[in-house]
Design a protein around this nucleic acid. Sequence first.
DNA 1: GCGCCAGTTGACAAGCATTTGCAAAATTTT
DNA 2: AAAATTTTGCAAATGCTTGTCAACTGGCGC
Lengths: 152, 152
Amino acid sequence: MLVNWRIIGSMETMNHKPDYEKELRDAGIRITRPRRVILDILSGTEDHPDAMEIFRRAVSVDSSISLSTVYRTMKLLEERGAIHRHAFNGGPSRFEQASGVHHDHLIDIETGDVVEFRSDRIEKLQEEIARSLGYDIVHHRLELYGRKRKKA
Amino acid sequence: MLVNWRIIGSMETMNHKPDYEKELRDAGIRITRPRRVILDILSGTEDHPDAMEIFRRAVSVDSSISLSTVYRTMKLLEERGAIHRHAFNGGPSRFEQASGVHHDHLIDIETGDVVEFRSDRIEKLQEEIARSLGYDIVHHRLELYGRKRKKA
DNA sequence: GCGCCAGTTGACAAGCATTTGCAAAATTTT
DNA sequence: AAAATTTTGCAAATGCTTGTCAACTGGCGC
């Protein structure tokens, strides 16, 4: 059974290093044990956890990790553009790995679930509006808050 | 000169009570001295001040007003829909009087200035997107962060 | 106009999310 | 593997906001 664990294990437990580790290392960021744990959590999730939730998940992997380190790592990764920070509803910051394509968010006001979407037409309109106001857009934030439609 | 002061004075110093006072009173909200001061500040400004800034302006009118009261009043007015709360860039909440028409915001990342705008086409697209994802929009938040375009 | 009393206030403590100071521990450099 | 440097865990500190509570007051009823 020396072979099967690789197949059975999750992506995170497999021993080929994710490419983002190399990228970060090349950017002058040390890949320490706490950071690797946090990066694995972020890359292996579909949701948008906040610092406390990341901390909880991290502790279950390595109980010595501190909340401070989670916050420090989030700030570091955000500065490097590796993750995005959101404050839906003015609540605590929630994070997501910065994947290639930009997208906006639809937040279910009943469950807190987040659905990602993207609209080139809206993006285009935003550019036009900013331009007409004499500005260049550096970034933007579009959040739709809604509830799941009952029935059809 | 018993006549001219009315013309020269600002809207806030003129003695006809603003109609929003009556509206709030009818909604069961007592118009106290601190609240009147705060309401006057909100109705008389074009910008989007945060609690501390409102507090500073209020104190200059009535030095006995406390910061607690500013926060309490903002929460009250927000619940009643009389004002809107924004947390641009994840910073402290900034407030604006709820005027009739909905609008979105363009924030100057260099000065913090806020420009209001409105696009029916974007609103329409948002509805379409939410609908296609199976949701009804309850509210939304669109913030453009940009910098003033140099030259033409 | 005057008193009553629930609603409101100011002062200050407490709460929550996040940041920071610091000595110890881990990592990279030499 | 020792030196140089960064990162960590812990605890204390911060910034914004809400809660507590005795004192005060707006607005109705007389």
